[in-house]
Amino acid sequence: MEFSLFLQYLFAGITYGIIYAIVAIGFNIIYNTTGIINFAQGEFLMLGGMISISLLQVMPLPLAIAAAVAITMVVGALIQMVFIRWIENPSVLRMVIITIGISILIREAALHIWGESVRTLPYFIGSSVTAVTLFGTRISPQVLIVIGTCSIMVLFLSIFFRYTSLGREMRACAANRRAATLCGINVKNMVTFSFMLSAGIGALAGAVMSPITYSQYDNGTGLAIKGFTVAILGGLGNSLAAVAAGLFLGIIEAFSITILPLAFQDAVAIAILLLILFIRPHGLFGSSEAARLKEF
């Protein structure tokens, strides 16, 4: 394989990989505070892309994206308050089915608002043929924007969770709910906030990736299952490992095109998911002892 072609695949892999990592981190944020896997996580990305495309008609691009992120965060908060906040001690099966129901409703609402057509945001810089030369290969600046935005988000989140009091309170809920309550932390508000945060980063990723990957009412499910694969690969709840796992999956997927038909690209990721679940359910980087203590 030519070196420049190799780089092309590599950058495609990194782009998708970091998007998967953002979805996985979205899963992790909610999982950490609630023990729930939010099956509607992929829908946040779809909403981010779709809303910013619609808003672009009445306002400039940066404002449209900011507004889309804000709206999606409100949607995330509403979902948690309407469907989840008031349920006491739900079983895992019940929560799985509830979040699946939510994802279907969001998707169907999107279908009736935006129709089946594939939409896209314009390229932020130049057009689809604009390219910068990097290591002797031509890369669209949008790819760099996606990678940059997602990296900044990851950095921001790790600072947020480590150094701000709000981030610390959320981590306290993850570590021990009852102890957090005893320390005067309002656990229910923290959960609502985790849904907002998770919806916000999803929406931002959904908007910046839209020029490359396009937005359609039903592309949330695929993203959710990839993101889940990455979250599991990294060990549920471990966000930095999720970035590594995301890049790993994205790059494998990108190179799988060289040996498999494009139509089977999704099947590759899912086959990896199944393999990991069978062999190391606690993830490549997770510890099996920690996994045993978690409630699934």
Binding site: I37, I225, L273, F296
Partner: peptide, 10 residues
């Protein structure tokens, strides 16, 4: 052998 979320996703 999987439970809960893992079984659902698998």
């Amino acid at each position: 052998k999987l439970k809960g979320h893992y079984l659902a996703m698998a």
